[in-house]
Amino acid sequence: MSEAARVQESAIDRKARVADGLSGFLGAQWGTGVSIEGMVETSAGARRGNVLFDAVRDDDGSRLPLCVTYLPTLNIELMKISDEAALILLAEEGGVPVPHVHFASEDPSWVGGPFFISDRVQGETVPRRVLRQVAADGTGHQIVESLGRAFAALHQIPASKAPESLGRPSGETPSEMALARLAEQLDNLLQPSPVFNLGLRWLVRNPPAPPRRLSIVHGDVRNGNIIVDHGGLAAVLDWEVAKIGDPMEDLAWPCLRCWRFGEDRREVGGFGAREGLIRGYSEGGGHFDAHSFHWWKVLGTMRWGLGLAGQARGHLDGTFSNIVMAASGRRVAEQEYDLLCLLRPRGH
């Protein structure tokens, strides 16, 4: 059987298994027969599977647009699914736009892995389509401010309320913790990258002030992990890398050039300028720190470059081989260039 045929077939098997499991699980919860219709597996997430579907109840015929998020295999579990679900509910309570979570289960027998079921929020998630829609609707600046407000809401939730399993610094500052991880990634490169050594040198010598307080940090808010509708920002998705850390890490991440998808002059995700993000964040009660923001942007640019190099390594050593991972190796230079731009010597 060809690779393509194998991939296709296993996708069909998985879909059927998920449909059966959802029907059984929701039927038991609601005490009525439930049919699962219009299933669409979305491309997002090597770490999580996502399937959009309609649940139709036998008793009253009502139709609910839902989404199931599950762990496709039991390998790299970043965060327990039930913790992720609890975190999303906590964020919702704090005023962050998220899909409402209805159920979470660690029982792998339903859909092949732990899962949670949430509302399906209507809107666009594919980055370039998002940017086209935003350009047509003229909602870019509004989205930037909404992101600022969403971050402010998230960062004001007391970190003590977060699930205990969330990663967090122990003794060191969040920036020290991130630097240690980065140095490790740098050691794993297949070939020397003096550009990244220059980057590490700058990061080590220009540390940010420790945050006023540690916050819940989503860790991956960017164009691609949000839902945008005609009114603007509809929901923040993909919470599985959340942790306790420095709020400025969250604000800097969507501002990396790699998340602007060609709209380079609009710093925040290709949507608009930084000022709107700061305004939304401040109005929402957050404290913006310009140096820390810049530091996390430099760190993020380097982290993404090293991540791409890691994908190429995974391809070459056979851990995860495919042409996309191979091509990632030749995208490292983009991050090296952006890093050098951010580190341009003063007056140079």
Partner: peptide, 25 residues
């Protein structure tokens, strides 16, 4: 390093260096 990185980009992603993020710093 900047000169070398621009050369690398001329092969892997021509035109990427038309934008310079230094303006954001």
């Amino acid at each position: 390093l900047m000169a070398t990185t621009r050369d690398k980009l001329a092969i892997v992603r021509p035109g990427y260096d038309r934008y310079d993020a230094a303006e954001e710093t």
